[in-house]
Design a protein around this nucleic acid. Structure first.
Length: 253
DNA sequence: AAACAGGCTGACA
DNA sequence: TGTCAGCCTGTT
C-alpha cells in the first residue's frame, strides 16, 4: 500500500490501523443485517467504515460537539488547532495538529474562550487536565469491557466528575471511535429519530410520543441508558456499525 | 426573532 | 434515582 503524509509516524501500518484495513467489512455488515432497514442503509452507504481515531483528540472533539452542529464543531476544532496546535506542512500547504492536552492545559482562559467554544471551554480544559495528569488513563480504561469503560469515563471521584463534559453520548462516541468498543451505540438526536421511525418496537410508546409531539426532544439519562441497551442487545457485538449506517440513513432523508 | 443545534451540569424532588 | 432549567454561540 502506498500513502503520503506530513510525518514519518503516519506510515502504511498507521493507515492500515486507522482505516481498519485488517477487518473484513462484508463479515461485519452481515452481522448487523438484521432487517430491511439496515439492509437498505447498507446498500445505500456501502463502504462506510468506522475508523480508529486518536484517543485524546477524539474525546476532546466530542466534548466540543456537545449541543452543537457539524459546521460549528468543525470551526471550533480548526480554531483550537490553529491557535494551540503545532504547525504542519503537507505538500506545500500549511496545517495544524490538534493541540496536545498540555497545550490546552497551559492555555490562557480568555484565549481558549475566544475560540468560540462557549461553555465548552471549561470542559475542554478539565478533560485536558485529567488526561495530562493521569486522572484518566486511556490504556487502562479502554482495556476494560464496554460497561466498565463507560462507567470509568463518566465516573466521579470524591463527588467530582473526572471528565467534566462527558455524559453518556460523548462517552459512547469516544468508546466507539477511539476505544475499540464496537458494541457502543451512541444516540444523538438523529439516531433517536431514526429509531422512533424505523424501530418503534425497540423504543417504547411513551418515548416515541415524546419525540414526536413534545417540544422537549432530548433524551433523559434513564431514557438514554435503556434505549442504548436495547439497541446493543438487538444488534450485538457490531452495534456501533449498525448505528453508523442508521445515522447516515437518518440524515439523508 | 424565537427556536434550534450530533448534551451536559448542577440543583432539587 | 429521576426531573428540569440553563447554558455559549452560530444559523435559520
Amino acid at each position: 500500500m502506498r500513502c503520503a503524509s506530513s510525518s514519518d509516524r503516519l506510515d502504511s501500518s498507521f493507515v492500515r490501523n486507522y482505516f481498519r484495513l485488517d477487518e473484513d467489512l462484508t463479515v461485519v455488515l452481515a452481522s448487523i443485517m438484521k432487517d430491511d432497514v439496515e439492509r437498505e442503509a447498507i446498500q445505500k452507504f456501502y463502504g462506510l467504515k468506522l475508523v480508529r481515531q486518536e484517543r485524546w483528540e477524539c474525546l476532546a472533539s466530542f466534548v466540543l460537539a456537545t449541543n452543537s452542529n457539524i459546521p460549528r464543531i468543525r470551526a471550533m476544532v480548526e480554531k483550537v488547532s490553529s491557535v494551540f496546535g503545532e504547525p504542519l506542512e503537507f505538500e506545500g500547504l500549511p496545517y495544524h495538529s490538534f493541540p496536545s492536552p498540555e497545550a490546552i492545559r497551559r492555555a490562557k482562559a480568555s484565549k481558549l474562550r475566544s475560540c468560540g467554544l462557549g461553555y465548552r471551554a471549561r470542559f475542554l480544559r478539565q478533560v485536558a487536565e485529567a488526561v495530562d495528569d493521569g486522572s484518566i488513563d486511556f490504556d487502562s480504561v479502554y482495556s476494560m469491557g464496554y460497561e466498565d469503560a463507560r462507567r470509568a469515563l463518566t465516573s466521579k471521584i470524591y463527588g467530582e466528575k473526572v471528565l467534566l463534559g462527558v455524559g453518556p453520548k460523548v462517552a459512547d462516541c469516544a468508546l466507539l471511535f477511539s476505544g475499540g468498543k464496537d458494541e457502543a451505540f451512541p444516540i444523538d438526536v438523529w439516531v433517536a429519530r431514526a429509531i422512533a421511525r424505523f424501530y418503534p418496537a425497540l423504543m417504547g410508546r411513551s418515548l416515541r410520543k415524546k419525540l414526536g409531539s413534545s417540544a422537549q426532544k432530548k433524551l433523559t439519562a434513564p431514557e438514554y441508558s435503556k434505549l442504548s441497551k436495547s439497541m446493543r442487545d438487538y444488534f450485538g457485538a457490531n452495534a456501533g456499525y449498525a448505528q453508523q449506517y442508521l445515522y447516515m440513513l437518518s440524515r439523508n432523508r
